[in-house]
Each structure stands twice: as C-alpha cells, then as structure tokens.
Computed example of a mutant assay.
Amino acid sequence: MKITKRPRRLRANKAIRDLIRETKITPDDLVYPIFVVEGKNRKEEISTLKGNYHLSVDMLYEEVKEIRDCGIKSLLIFGIPDNKDCLGTESYSDNGIVQRAVREIKKNYKDMYIITDICMCQYTDHGHCGILTEEGIIDNDETLDYLGKIAVSHAKAGADMVAPSDMMDARIGYIRKQLDKEGYSNIPIMAYSAKYASSFYGPFRAAAHSAPSFGDRKTYQMDPANGDEALREVQLDIEEGADIVMVKPALPYLDIIRRIKDNHNIPIAAYNVSGEYSMLRTAVDTGLLSEDAIIEALTSIKRAGADIIITYFAKEICKQLRIDS
C-alpha cells in the first residue's frame, strides 16, 4: 500500500507554502522606535544601533515620510533632553522634547499613530526611572505623581497612546485616573507589564543616554529567572486599566509571551530590544547569518503570540516584504 505524503507535497511549491503559512508578518504588526534630540539639522547615526538615528525635531518630516512610505503606521517616541535634573522636569514640560516632536509629526502626518514612552530615566540626572529618596532608593508612590504629569502632557501634545515603561507599582491605575480626570479617557495605555532587568538593553541605554549613574534597576524590573511573576504583573496591570500589555525583551522571553497569550484575552506587544537588534544586525552584516534570519526571528515573536512587535528592524522588514510581494 502506497502512503500519500501530503505534507511534503504541500511544501513542494512556494505558492502553496505561502497560501498555508500559519504566521505572517505585515507592516500593520510593527511599531518603529525613534529617538528625538535637541538642536537643529541633526540626523546622526546611533553608533550602538546601526541604521537608526538621533533626530532633531526639524528633521522629523523627512524621516517620518520614509517610515510611512515603507507602510509603517505606528511610532514609539523616545526623547533625549539636554537638561536633566533630579525631578526629571523636562519630561512633563509642555515644551519638552517629546511634546514638541509629537506636535511636529501630527502637524504633517495626522494619520501616523504616535505612542510615547512614559518614564523618567532619560530626564533624571541619576538615570533611574523615578524620584529618589535621600537614601538613594526609588520612592514608588511619589514617582506616580510625576508619571501622571508626563502622560497628561503627552496626551495634551497629541499622542495617541502612552506606554509607561518605569515598572513602578500601581502606575497604570494612577495614569489611567489622571488621563480620565483631564479629559483623555480615549487615550489607551500600553503597559510595559513584564519588563525584565535584562542585559539586552545596553545599546539602547547608550542611544538614549539613560544608563543609571549608580546601582542598577533590579529592584523595580523583573528577575529574568521568573515566569509566574510575569503573569501576576500582567493581571495587575489589566485590573488597573491597561489596554495592551508588553513583554520586554522579546526573543529571550518567547515562553512568557506564549504564557500570557494562553492565560489572558488582551493584546500583547513584544519589544525586540536593542541588544537583540544589534546581535542580529552584526551577524548579518558580517556574513555569519543571511538576512532571512531577521524575518525568521520576528516571525518567532509573532508565532509565540505577540500582536504588536516593536522593532528597530521595522523599516528594513517592510521594504523586504514589499520586494517579496
């Protein structure tokens, strides 16, 4: 009796393989992070993130045009101020770097969906994600007030979504309350719910000038060894009003993405962080891996259960998808 080998037959033709592909990356899945700096006429490649740039506000028009022409509809904005202090004052100023960037982009590209990072590490002179006590310890409850101010100022500038990345306890509920109080109940919150104290953030911290001046962030970011804790953190953020939850980093935590997907009915974002990008970028550029490794890595993130992928590869992937189509 002859056994019919149907799986092999279905794999024999590319057109068939494309038809039955279970997981597909599209531009709609991707969010592209950009770094905005002070000054004028600045477009400077970030040494730790090849192919990504520090951009002054006046240079955003051409950059966002290129991003939009690739098919990308969503941005995550990080601001890098010149002036820092212990209270991160520039983070919630109406004339802050993110607030000006949002207004500039919305002036020219009203259809571009803008997500803003809500944190204090780029704005404090000590590089930590909140207000410090005299003993140099994060004051969780006092920090909430500042995070609320930042979120409201971003919404006022025209942000479509805010993304708290600080990992303070109860910040989602506090920010939700402040946004609602100020008339921004329509602004969703994407919570960095499972943000690990990871070694993969190094290139970002150099790019954002946000490395802590002392100590580390292990007291408020998650232990990489913990999985159950991620589910608890996600549950708490959902109860406080998060609209989307995030896992960060992505590739070392695919199991966490899947566990959240299996346990919670909520959109999941995954941040393909700077260290993941730099490793793959270097491997491809030096010929150790083919460019196909990039799409393979991002496909694994979506296959694990992510609905949204934040990645520095977004422009490159969208250009490749256009060629392949």
Rank of each mutant, 00 (worst) to 15 (best):
P212H: 09
K195I: 07
S153N: 09
T116A: 09
Y196Q: 11
R171T: 11
D139V: 12
I115K: 10
G202M: 10
G173L: 01
Q122L: 02
T116N: 03
S165D: 12
H128D: 01
I118G: 02
T124N: 06
I189Q: 03
A208Y: 00
K156Q: 06
G148I: 04
I137T: 15
A197F: 01
E134A: 12
D145I: 08
M120L: 15
Y196L: 11
H209I: 12
E182Q: 14
Q122D: 09
G158E: 04
K195M: 11
A159P: 01
Y123F: 06
E142P: 08
D117T: 08
G158A: 08
S185A: 15
S198Y: 03
D139S: 15
H128Y: 01
S210V: 12
G148D: 12
Q178T: 15
G183Q: 04
L132E: 00
S199N: 14
M168T: 01
S213M: 09
D160L: 02
L179S: 06
T133I: 01
D139A: 11
T116K: 02
E182S: 11
D141A: 12
P203D: 10
Y146S: 08
T116M: 09
D145C: 02
I131M: 01
A191T: 05
Y174F: 15
I187T: 06
I150M: 05
G202W: 05
M120H: 04
I118E: 00
G127V: 03
K156W: 04
T133F: 00
P212Q: 06
E134C: 12
S185H: 14
I137F: 14
Y184P: 03
G148S: 07
Y184D: 02
S198N: 02
D125P: 08
G136H: 08
A194P: 10
Y174P: 09
A170S: 14
L132D: 00
Y192I: 07
A157L: 02
E134Q: 13
T116P: 04
M168V: 11
P188D: 05
G148P: 11
A207I: 01
P212I: 10
S185K: 11
T124Y: 04
P212F: 02
K149Y: 05
G183M: 09
A211R: 02
H209L: 09
M161L: 14
I138M: 13
A197D: 10
G183F: 12
A206E: 15
M168C: 10
A170P: 02
M167E: 05
Y184E: 05
R171W: 10
Y201N: 03
K149R: 14
G183W: 12
Y174H: 14
T124F: 00
M190R: 07
K181H: 05
D141M: 09
A163F: 07
K177D: 13
A194C: 08
S210D: 02
D117E: 07
A197Q: 04
S153A: 14
K156V: 11
G136D: 03
L179I: 12
C129H: 00
M190F: 08
M190W: 05
H128P: 00
E134T: 15
E135D: 15
T124M: 00
E182R: 10
